[in-house]
Simulated assay, not measured.
Amino acid sequence: MLTTALAIAPVFLLICTGYALRRGGIPSEEFWNLNDRLVYFVLMPALFFVRISEADLSGEGLLRFAGTLYAGFFAAVLFGVAAALWLARGGAVGTSVIQGAGRFNTFVALAVAEALHGAEGLQLAVLGAALLVPVVNLTVVSLFAVFLPRPGGRPIRGALLSLGTNPLILSILAAIGFNAAGLAPIPVLSGTLSVLGQAALPIMLLCVGASLRLRGLTADAAPVALAALGKLAVFPLAILAAASAFGLAPLPAAVALVYGALPTGVAAYTLSRQLGGDAPLMATMITVQTLLAFAAMPVWLTLAG
């Protein structure tokens, strides 16, 4: 376990560095806001396109990998739904519990997979993101429509429209198209996007840290605890069970478990604000789970080994 903890320690140290830099005003608040956009609109789509367009998307192994990831995600979401109904604190709190239990920080997944398993691990983590990101977003937006119905459904339609223009999803779809047509790698373009993709991991980890809020966090402990239980216990347990049931190979199973052991993602806070969820509660969940993941992730990854 110590070896695993040391391997992923630089990932969390970069997150802490991002937090410290932003709180210290280095270089400026505007820099971090613009950096988030750089990662979201340029660096991550470049990384996704290069890795997916040149990956092997055929074979039974990919189906088993997908089945394992979906089993973990939907098990955690179902736990979140059950917890939200049991708490009976209203739709805003309920949607935060569901997101806290089922969503994950893709940026951290890519960095941890590369730290532990090198280029092959990063490739699998990118494929995992391609499989999960569209499904996760559609599932969560649909549950918002159930728990927080709005007259006319305008916020939900706006969220669905934003999914259709999401640069990560668009880059995934474009990469799959080029892969299927056998057009990748593309001379010059693929090389340029590969260089941009190499810059993505360290910058996005700094941005994850910069987005954390440790001051002024106030929230009911029960929803925070239940969301953490779903994300850091139910999700990885379901991944382990599914990987064993599907006979998944060791490396894909280990990368799938990385997704299971991740804290919930910063995008959950944005969606809560957009669709009328409890955004302060969501911010608390993100921060608490990020801190807990320091301890939980080495345990789960050691169990996988």
Results as ranks from 00 to 15, higher is better:
107 F>I: 13
174 A>Y: 03
255 V>I: 09
75 A>M: 02
270 T>L: 15
290 T>K: 05
252 P>Y: 05
232 L>D: 07
172 I>T: 14
195 V>K: 14
104 F>D: 02
273 R>N: 12
97 V>A: 06
198 Q>A: 15
82 A>I: 14
36 D>R: 11
120 E>G: 07
9 A>L: 15
244 S>W: 06
273 R>A: 13
20 A>F: 02
191 G>T: 00
211 S>T: 10
173 L>Q: 05
103 R>N: 02
169 I>S: 07
149 P>M: 10
252 P>D: 11
167 P>T: 08
111 A>T: 10
296 A>K: 04
142 S>E: 08
223 P>C: 03
141 V>G: 06
44 M>A: 15
305 G>V: 05
36 D>P: 01
241 A>C: 13
295 A>G: 14
16 C>D: 11
194 S>V: 03
89 R>Q: 15
54 E>A: 12
217 L>T: 08
210 A>P: 03
141 V>S: 07
255 V>G: 08
58 S>M: 05
264 T>V: 11
119 A>M: 02
244 S>H: 09
248 L>N: 09
126 V>A: 11
135 V>I: 15
50 V>N: 02
153 G>M: 01
118 G>K: 05
43 L>C: 08
2 L>F: 02
68 T>I: 02
138 L>Q: 11
86 W>T: 14
285 M>W: 01
51 R>A: 13
1 M>S: 14
57 L>H: 08
161 L>P: 00
104 F>L: 10
61 G>R: 10
142 S>L: 10
141 V>A: 07
105 N>V: 00
234 V>F: 02
251 L>S: 04
218 T>N: 13
287 T>L: 00
44 M>E: 12
268 A>K: 00
89 R>E: 14
257 L>I: 12
98 I>Y: 06
12 F>A: 09
116 L>I: 10
20 A>E: 00
23 R>Q: 14
143 L>H: 08
129 A>M: 10
236 P>L: 01
163 L>Q: 06
126 V>Y: 04
165 T>V: 12
193 L>P: 03
52 I>C: 07
148 L>D: 04
293 A>G: 09
136 V>D: 09
141 V>W: 00
210 A>E: 02
77 V>D: 06
229 L>V: 13
245 A>V: 04
118 G>I: 01
172 I>G: 07
279 A>W: 01
27 P>Q: 11
287 T>V: 04
87 L>I: 08
197 G>L: 00
202 P>E: 10
16 C>V: 15
109 A>L: 02
